[in-house]
Structure formats: C-alpha cells, structure tokens
Simulated scan of single mutants.
Amino acid sequence: MRVDLFDFDLPQELIALRPARPRDAARMLVVRGEGLFEDAGVSDLPRLLRRGDVLVFNDTRVIPAQLEGRRGEAKIGATLHKRIDLRRWQAFIRNAKRLRPGETVEFGGGVSATAEERLADGSFVLAFHGEEPVEVLLERAGRMPLPPYIAGKRATDAQDLEDYQTMFAREDGAVAAPTAALHFTPRLMDALDAAGVARETLTLHVGAGTFLPVKGDDTDHHAMHSEWGRIESETARRLNAAREAGGRIIAVGTTSLRLLESATGEDGLIQPIAGDTDIFITPGYRFRAVDGLMTNFHLPKSTLMMLVSALMGRERMMAAYDYAIANDYRFYSYGDSSLLLP
C-alpha cells in the first residue's frame, strides 16, 4: 500500500510533553466500527468494557538505553534497541560515519563498548566491557530514551524516570515504553476488578525500530525490526478460556496486540511463545487474537498508524484522527488514549 495514505497534519501544540496527572485523568476517544465517536476518559474504561472481557498488558520495563560517548575526539550517540546476549546489544548510532568495527566507545562512568560489526540496516553490534550486568552499566551511564518528538523539545529529567514507566513494568529490556498502559493507576485497576474485567500480562521488549518511520513510498518495501516476546502457557490457556466463554480480548497497546497476533494460529487459539517477532500489520490483515485495542494516538505514516487502520479500516481511522485533532486530543507517548472496538 502507498505510505502516503496514512499521512495527516498534526499541529505541534497537540504533541504532549508531559502526561496527564493523575494518569487516569487522560481523555479517551472511543471508536467503534460505525456510528458517532464518543468523548470519554480513561477512568470510564470500567463502564465501556463488559464483565468477562480481558485486558492484556505488556510488563516490559524501560531501561536507560540512550548513551552519549566518545570515540577519540568524535562524539558518538547510541540507542540500544535489542539485546543479543548478556553483553551485546544491537544499537542505532548517531554520527555513525565516525565509528568503525573494532573501535571502542567510552560512555563515561567506567562504561565502554566495542563496536563489533555494522549490520545491513546501518545499526551496530555493541559489546560492553567488564563483568557487571549491562543493566547496571546503563543505570550508571544511560538515560531514559524519550521519543525524539519529546526529547527534541525539552530535556529528559528525573520525573521521566517515573512518568515513562508503566505500573506493570517488571521485566527489564524495553527501550520504549508500552505507552497505552501509562494511563493505568491502582485506583483504575480496582474499578476494573469490581466491574469483572480480567487482566493478563505478557512481555514484549519494545525496540526503537518499532517507531522508525516507514522508508519508501510503499509498505512492501519496509522491513520491521524484530523484538523479543513471551507469553506463558498458563496465560495463553486463560486467554483462550475467556474467549471461549464469550469475553473479549482487549490489547492494551500495539505491543501487546502484535505479540498476541504473532502467537495465534489460523484456528484462533493463542499459543505460548518465547522468541522474536517482526510482524507487520497493515490493512487487509485478518485479526485472529484480539477483539479490541486501547492505544495512544500515533505518528503519521508510521507502522502503528497502519496497524490501527488495519483493525478499524483506514477511512474510519483517518476520520477518528481528524476528529481528535479538531477536539484537541493530546498525541503520542504522553498523550491521550483511544479505545478501538471494531
């Protein structure tokens, strides 16, 4: 499909630079398969879902994956985006023309890494020195990897260490937050429990590649970066049982949706999974696992804009985004939410 079919103009003032406070005070646009759009709030979620529905959260935890260092006199920036093994990470490099395989980058605080090889997509494999876990090194030398549309407008600060982490964060490994779940609070979870809405968790370590713009004019020419994910066998069993009993599976965030769809066969049964996925969902895709999606508003011409268009229909989603812009919804990672029910 033509990439420009998923383009739209967004006023810069609608890009949220801080989240709503409290988190569940964010607005939420309800988009159904047909009919009028509904202006609601995240706190309305218990009345918008049904007893027996299941919300599926991603429990990945964002690590301080952005590093600034030097190779000699050259400044080198690195954004880790996928773990290879205990000491090696794949990383996007800023000022990559000044770095060659075999050279070492000093990141400060006693943290350094060797650029082992340059991959076909332009990223590098970085092998970190020493015996301390890489996560410990990152806590010392790294910073929270805010998306460029936020980091380009203000400096990352201590508040982001809390704001850019969901209440479900448990498994270290993401370099971007599963932002749909940023809206949840213990108070909201209690209300969902009282409404009979169940919850499950999976793990997908979100990589920066998910949010890269689609290069080229056609979706056929875009290659998704792979990300590692896991759904436990008991989680899969409970999800299948809930659906068999008439409950709907509502993914909280595109990361949860992508792993659920990766784990589901043609028979509609969700299977346990532990491994990489590079699923790329565009209009025409037949959804097998999910019955709805809660997600923030996405960038124009992004793979995530294509995903929500696949779920709801491109014209329906473009109309929803026009409505959101006209009604001053806040966009992107720290922005408002939408509930998509095809």
Rank of each mutant, 00 (worst) to 15 (best):
K215G: 12
K215A: 14
G216W: 09
D217L: 12
D218L: 14
D218K: 06
D218V: 09
D218W: 06
D218P: 07
D218M: 10
T219V: 15
T219R: 09
D220F: 11
D220E: 12
H221Y: 07
H222L: 09
A223Y: 00
M224G: 12
M224Y: 04
M224F: 13
M224H: 12
H225K: 14
H225P: 15
S226M: 14
E227I: 07
W228T: 10
W228P: 06
R230Y: 08
R230G: 02
R230M: 12
I231E: 02
I231L: 06
E234R: 13
E234H: 13
T235W: 03
T235K: 03
T235A: 07
T235Q: 04
A236T: 14
R237F: 05
R238L: 05
N240M: 05
N240F: 09
N240V: 07
N240Y: 08
N240W: 10
A241T: 12
A242P: 11
A242R: 08
A242L: 11
A242V: 11
R243I: 04
R243N: 02
E244N: 03
E244M: 03
A245H: 11
A245F: 10
A245N: 13
A245Y: 08
G246D: 07
G247R: 09
G247D: 08
G247N: 03
G247E: 03
I249D: 01
I249K: 00
I249V: 12
I250T: 07
I250A: 07
V252S: 10
G253T: 09
G253A: 10
G253P: 13
T254S: 08
T254K: 03
S256Y: 05
L257Q: 04
L257P: 11
R258K: 06
L259N: 10
L259P: 03
L259A: 14
L260V: 04
E261T: 08
E261F: 01
S262Y: 11
A263R: 05
A263W: 02
T264G: 11
G265T: 03
E266I: 04
E266S: 14
G268V: 09
G268I: 09
L269G: 05
L269N: 01
